[in-house]
Nucleic acid binder design. Structure first.
Lengths: 115, 115
DNA sequence: CAGCATCCTCTGTGATACTG
DNA sequence: CAGTATCACAGAGGATGCTG
């Protein structure tokens, strides 16, 4: 059970907040987690959902998520390699958080939607 | 109503998630928001709650939060300067999100708590 | 297909000192 | 008290090419 290996954490009761933020921080972790909520995905499937991510970054973020015990990485010994990514129980437990983020975003963010 | 002036946002439905993350990303924004949930605070009061933050960073983060319309900055024209920081309606609307973060953190994070 | 290795840039963060 | 101004740096993030 990986403790918060990130460096921060200087608050008092707010530590928890920072801690979670440290987990989903990283330019793509949040969205990756969000997409994985829908179910298992293969590397390129995730990649397709993040138009501007580079493999390096995606690999990177996935590895960190894996290290934090949020994502499960399953490698199939096949000729055309296949790697599945899914949420661990811990990862899935983040669902309410991700949902809260998405809900708020949908409600309070002016995205590309016209008007 | 400040749009997401940050650069990212490359997802599809996950945009919202990224968007919010962009707002509370920044090493101290999360905790600052958390502490402001309890009520208005002065600059040094916030600072005292974040042991390791430097004025430069705190000022910085507060200004960004202000620019994003999450925090209200009130300057009093006094001799010993006084500046109050409080949440705007938009900022306060983030409460469920912050709460979700804190709740998850308390439940799933191994912090400094013994055992 | 799903990476890894390199190289490079930029910006977020920090330390320190000064000011109205 | 609540900043502002500099200087400096680590590492997050990106571009590209190669590989089992």
């Amino acid at each position: 059970m990986p403790k918060v290996r990130h460096k921060r954490l200087d608050c008092s009761p707010g530590c928890a907040v920072e801690g979670v933020l440290a987990l989903i921080d990283g330019k793509w972790k949040g969205v990756v987690l969000y997409h994985l909520l829908s179910g298992t995905l293969r590397f390129n499937e995730i990649r397709r959902r993040l138009p501007n991510v580079t493999q390096r970054m995606l690999t990177n973020q996935l590895r960190e998520l894996e290290a934090d015990g949020l994502v499960l990485r399953t490698v199939f010994a096949q000729v055309p390699p296949r790697v599945d990514y899914s949420l661990t129980a811990r990862g899935r437990s983040l669902e309410p958080v991700i949902t809260a983020l998405k809900t708020w975003g949908d409600a309070h963010l002016e995205l590309e939607k016209a008007a």
